[in-house]
Nucleic acid binder design. Structure first.
Length: 848
RNA sequence: GCCGGUGUGGUGGAAUUGGCAGACGCGCCGGACUCAAAAUCCGGUGAGGGCAACCUCGUGUGGGUUCGACUCCCACCACCGGCACCA
């Protein structure tokens, strides 16, 4: 190889080398400690973007680093291959979703290979493969058997553009997570997974997720949303059954002046005579804009004070939470207050702020804080918290209610009225009703001969062959379920599938128990409540099915920040590509360009950088290096073309240093220990720096994966190597070789190709990735001489060099002798001297 | 509104338990090489003052603890993210 660094050539050579020797293949080995390193698998959208590059670069460094520490590392990759874009492509371009998906996978796999990622491709998972989704169906059947999968009518989030139902987790600010259309509420019959069954366990588990970022844990807790309160029945005039309400504020029970039912509440139909008015309120259900209500004409009895209070249907009451009915306390709840004002209902104060006698007679807002109870029978005078406890007990003693816990978490709606997903394995029979498909008939295969018009519901409705099937129970012709599963079902267990190869048993207990859980999971924070919560739920279901024997799938989670870039705007032409700009002006109209904010890369804002082009120009090593160096992994990263060039320069420098010294050191035998008396001061310093660098790189990676500072340390070492001049002895060359070889080893997880090449150029036997991670010697790393900082009253006044390991007394002596220091302490009384070992001395003097 | 996070040079970001603020990189300035440029290499680079050795100020704002605070405590401001009629 000639002396010029040509990244493309080097990278192709080593990628082939690794592939030919299958160096990333792993097998279960109970003798070795395992490490499961996983990055969130991508949706095969067509091309990878910089967010992928960053995600996989981080994962690859960790996998390679752990491998060099002797771990048996599982590092797989796959495809979250079902989903809407494939179907939209079919409608728009007439290409079948399967073909579209597999072509994208081919292309993207090739891109990933060019990045030099250490994946074991024989474990590749593709979720649209019947061999994979068969197990989705199998889990569904098992869950159905146990009542964890069920069908119910409810209001659901409907995306009018995607023409499908969305889970609560997929609605962001009232809009579809995928296409951003406004989501509407629709009453439909849907399949659900009973995730609420695990609400408490999922919540408790949060506290044990020590290796997860706090904000993600907080978001999950928040989403599960536990609250404690009481449930009690309010009897209804002229009806035998009462209205069961839930409240977290039993201390305000005496202030309840009306009762509200959710529009979908079973009693609402029976209490309301005017159907059209009810439908009107229903239409406004869940709408945040305005409160809408309808008096039922009936009254309920407040069991605490036996007052008759009116019953309303109100659009702001949710059927899905609590009991679907509330007692309304307008004096102490702003929503009830607004409603009471609108409909002229009485407002009764039962809590006053502690220390004050009463609230103003005309409230203009609800008093929602805690306080002292008034007008509340014999509970008057108690503080809210005491009252809640006592009233809870009182209610239970009298048998009129009970203390309960409620969760915001709703069951997971998994039905999707779309084609490109896992068919739900159920048949509807005229006689038998809902009948699950027999296990041995799995998979229910998605028919391929369907047409995509984009109109009139799922293409599956047109497939006679798929639709008309004999009932698995009685054999009579029934109708197959045409809804498919939410793709989040696919990604809820893919990490388990990786434990065995494609042709092996998908649920091999032994392999799963060896490889799981995932020691390190890496991905975007956007899945904080979606995928990550579903996976925790699924893992528990699989545990209860006896397939796995752990609760949490991901021990450590790293949520990497977004990849951002500066945006450019022209007042005339909007967002601009960098190439549309010349001399700070828009090329088209000459207007001065507005340098916009640094924002997440997006096509619409024209601030994307294409990984292919970057890799072609600088090589994967440079792209990896820059994306790891520019920011710590959990923070947002600002892409900078100049920064990339800086990374490229660094690799070129390393390359030329190695080749400059190659003839001198390539023939030498590797040594790890040196006779310090034989080497020059420069070599001794380089040796020390090398050991310090091993230590810094290692601890920076161990401590929260701070690759940016680890790389900075390597740059410092390379700077020192570059300035190194050997003394008049041959031993110095051994130090130089040791230092360069160590640099290559430390850099190899970040930049695997160039380090392999240089490793080989120095006469070392490939592959560098099979080497052990270097170790440092604390005594060599320690400085012989330290720079002691001298402060007087906390201000730095002087610095002196001292030998390491002096006693405090000796140090004080040296300090007080120091010329510069004396200027500041002369004629003053020394009150105290603080010595920080090996670092600093602070002299406290009077009269300063 | 509730929950979480962030705030440091021209810029991306460093600073282990409270102990030299600004590592490393980018940019900029100066120099070497060159007919010239690019590339490369060397040096400088928080602000203000001084010919200088040096001095003063400086981590969003105000206070506190401490010999000593980017770091700990209290209050506030700004920005970012999540949730939000959840009774």
């Amino acid at each position: 190889m000639e002396e010029r660094y040509i990244p493309g050539k080097v990278e192709e050579k080593w990628q082939r080398y690794w592939a030919e020797r299958d160096l990333f293949k792993t097998d279960m080995d109970p003798e070795r400690k395992k490490f499961y390193c996983l990055e969130m698998f991508p949706y095969p959208s067509g091309k990878i973007h910089m967010g992928h590059v960053r995600n996989y670069a981080i994962g690859d460094v960790i996998a390679r680093y752990k491998r060099m520490h002797g771990y048996n590392v599982l590092h797989p990759m796959g495809w979250d291959a079902f989903g809407l874009p494939a179907e939209n492509a079919a409608i728009k371009e007439g290409i079948h979703p399967a073909r579209w998906t597999y072509e994208n996978i081919d292309y993207m796999k090739n891109q990933l290979k060019k990045m030099g990622l250490s994946y074991e491709w024989s474990r590749e998972v593709t979720t649209c493969d019947p061999e994979y989704y068969k197990w989705n169906q199998w889990f569904f059947l098992k869950m159905y058997e146990r009542g964890l999968a069920y069908k119910k009518v409810s209001f659901v989030n409907w995306c009018p553009s995607c023409l499908t139902v969305l889970a609560n987790e997929q609605v962001i600010d009232g809009r579809c997570w995928r296409c951003d259309s406004a989501v509407i509420q629709k009453e439909l019959e849907q399949w659900f997974f009973r995730i609420t069954e695990y609400a408490q366990e999922l919540l408790e588990g949060c506290d044990r997720l020590k290796g997860w970022p706090e904000n993600v844990v907080a978001m999950q807790k928040n989403w599960i949303g536990r609250s404690e309160g009481v449930e009690m029945d309010f009897p209804v005039d002229g009806f035998s059954e009462g209205i069961r309400i839930f409240t977290t504020r039993p201390d305000t029970l005496w202030g309840a002046t009306f009762v509200c039912l959710a529009p979908g509440h079973p009693l609402s139909e029976r209490l309301v005579t005017d159907r059209s008015r009810l439908d009107e309120v229903k239409k406004k259900y869940g709408k945040m804009e305005e409160k809408e209500g309808l008096f039922t004409g009936h009254c309920a009895i407040n069991p605490m004070n036996n007052e008759r209070i009116p019953i309303y249907i109100a659009n702001f009451v949710l059927m899905e939470y609590g009991t679907g009915a509330i007692m309304s306390v307008p004096a102490h709840d702003q929503r009830d207050f607004d409603f009471a004002k609108k409909y002229g209902l009485p407002i009764k104060v039962v809590i006053v702020p502690e220390g004050s006698v009463e609230l103003p007679s005309e409230l203009n807002a609800a008093y929602e804080d805690e306080g002292i109870l008034v007008n509340s029978g014999h509970f008057s005078g108690l503080r809210s918290d005491e009252a809640r406890k006592k009233i809870g007990e009182y209610i239970e003693e009298r048998g009129i209610g009970k203390r309960v816990i409620n969760y915001k978490l709703r069951d997971w709606g998994i039905s999707r009225q779309r084609y490109w997903g896992t068919p739900i394995p159920v048949v509807y029979c005229g006689d038998c009703g809902i009948v699950p498909v027999n296990e041995e008939d799995l998979p229910v295969i998605l028919p391929e001969d369907v047409s995509f018009t984009g109109k009139g519901g799922s293409p599956l409705l047109d497939s006679e062959e798929f639709l008309k099937v004999p009932c698995p129970r009685c054999g009579k012709i029934g109708k197959r379920e045409t809804d498919t599963m939410d793709t989040f079902v696919d990604s809820s267990w893919y990490f388990i599938r990786y434990c065995s190869r494609k042709d092996e048993d998908a649920l091999d207990r032994e392999k799963i128990s060896y490889w799981m859980p995932v020691e390190q999971y890496i991905g975007g924070v956007e899945h904080a409540v979606l995928h990550l919560l579903y996976s925790r739920f699924f893992t528990r279901v699989l545990r209860d099915l006896g397939i796995v024997e752990f609760d949490e799938p991901f021990t450590n989670l790293l949520t990497q920040g977004m990849v951002c870039k500066e945006t450019l705007r022209c007042p005339e032409h909007g967002w601009l590509f960098p190439e549309d700009v010349h001399d700070e002006r828009c090329k088209r109209c000459g207007s001065p360009v507005i340098r916009g904010r640094v924002e997440k890369m997006s096509k619409s804002k024209r601030n994307v950088v294409d990984p292919d082009r970057m890799i072609e120009r600088y090589g994967a090593d440079t792209v990896r290096l820059f994306s790891l160096f520019a920011a710590p992994p959990e923070k947002d990263l600002e892409w900078s073309d100049k920064g990339v060039e800086g990374a490229y320069r660094f690799l070129n420098r390393l390359w030329s240093i190695v080749y400059k010294n190659r003839d001198l050191i390539s023939g030498l035998v590797d040594e790890k220990s040196f006779d310090l008396s034989k080497i020059s001061a420069q070599a001794s310093s380089l040796l020390r720096k090398t050991h310090q660098t091993i230590k810094r790189v290692t601890t920076d990676i161990e401590r929260e994966f701070h690759f940016n500072t680890a790389i900075a340390a390597l740059m410092e070492l390379v700077n020192e190597i570059s300035g190194f001049e050997k003394g008049n002895n041959d031993e110095d060359l051994h130090v130089l070789r040791y230092s360069i070889v160590t640099t290559l080893l430390l850099l190899s997880p970040f930049c695997p190709h160039i380090t392999e090449e240089l490793w080989e150029a120095l006469g070392c036997k490939p592959s560098i990735l099979e080497q052990r991670w270097p170790e440092w010697d604390e005594t060599i790393a320690a400085e012989e001489e330290l720079e002691l900082v001298i402060q007087v009253n906390g201000k730095v006044r002087s610095k002196v060099m001292i030998p390491a390991g002096l006693s405090d007394e000796r140090i004080k002596g040296i300090v007080l002798d120091d010329q510069r220091t004396r200027k500041f302490i002369e004629g003053k009384t020394i009150k105290n001297i603080f010595v920080v070992k090996g670092k600093l001395v602070n002299i406290v003097v009077d009269g300063y």
